[in-house]
């Protein structure tokens, strides 16, 4: 039974990071805990880095986590896991999507997108467990590329060994009715991939 959990959701604007973190916070409430979540939108969100904090506890104080204390890092984009991994506590866990979204510093300047194998190896050196999810093809298989966030939540629900139904219900309550089936399928695929 989880009583305290700090999660950091990171990715790129447009990936559904904020919606996913909303749902994760709601699941905290549904599990009988207090929950808070915090994000910043506006200027940075335009194709930039997005980060959203989700905290579960009997009574949450700060809506943001503290660097070096995060239990689970949810990286919706591969290199973003590297940018944010120093927020993880020793022994924390990572769920990382293999999807790569090229930053402008790579396409219009001389920065280099990190090598996947090297990055994943480095992440493994920092975490007790790294779950690698290939969420984009799974989302396509489910029928809509915008279900990447549902796939990621499915993987998280598996990692946390929490009641899958609570998550699925929270997701379906949040997404538009006409996308219920495709999200149900995405959730199933995400669970299977992370299991």
């Amino acid at each position: 039974m989880i009583t305290n959990l700090d999660m950091l959701f990171v990715g790129v604007g447009g990936q559904g990071v904020l919606t996913a973190s909303d749902i994760a916070a709601q699941v905290g409430l549904d599990l009988g805990l207090d929950a808070k979540k915090s994000e910043v939108h506006g200027f940075a969100q335009r194709g930039g880095v997005v980060d959203s904090h989700v905290r579960w506890a009997p009574a949450v104080g700060s809506p943001t986590c503290e660097k070096g204390t995060v239990d689970v890092l949810m990286a919706f984009e591969l290199l973003e896991a590297g940018r944010w991994v120093d927020w993880l506590r020793p022994g924390g866990m990572i769920v990382v999507n293999r999807q790569q979204i090229t930053p402008m510093s790579v396409s219009i300047a001389n920065a280099v997108y990190p090598d996947e194998a090297a990055l994943l190896a480095a992440l493994r050196g920092r975490a007790s467990k790294v779950v690698v999810v290939d969420a984009l093809p799974l989302a396509e298989e489910a029928g809509n590329t915008r279900t990447v966030n549902t796939i990621m939540l499915a993987a998280l629900s598996t990692l946390l060994e929490t009641d899958a139904e609570v998550w699925e219900t929270a997701i379906l309550r949040r997404v538009p009715q006409r996308y219920a089936d495709v999200n149900r399928e995405a959730f199933r695929l995400g669970r299977a991939a992370a299991g």
Binding site: L88, V112, A122
Partner: peptide, 19 residues
């Protein structure tokens, strides 16, 4: 709070906002 060492194993490119 003891801070974990900064992540320097891999160079992470910047991701500035864009149009």
């Amino acid at each position: 709070l003891e801070q974990p060492a900064p992540f320097e194993d891999v160079t992470v490119p910047r991701r500035p906002p864009a149009l």
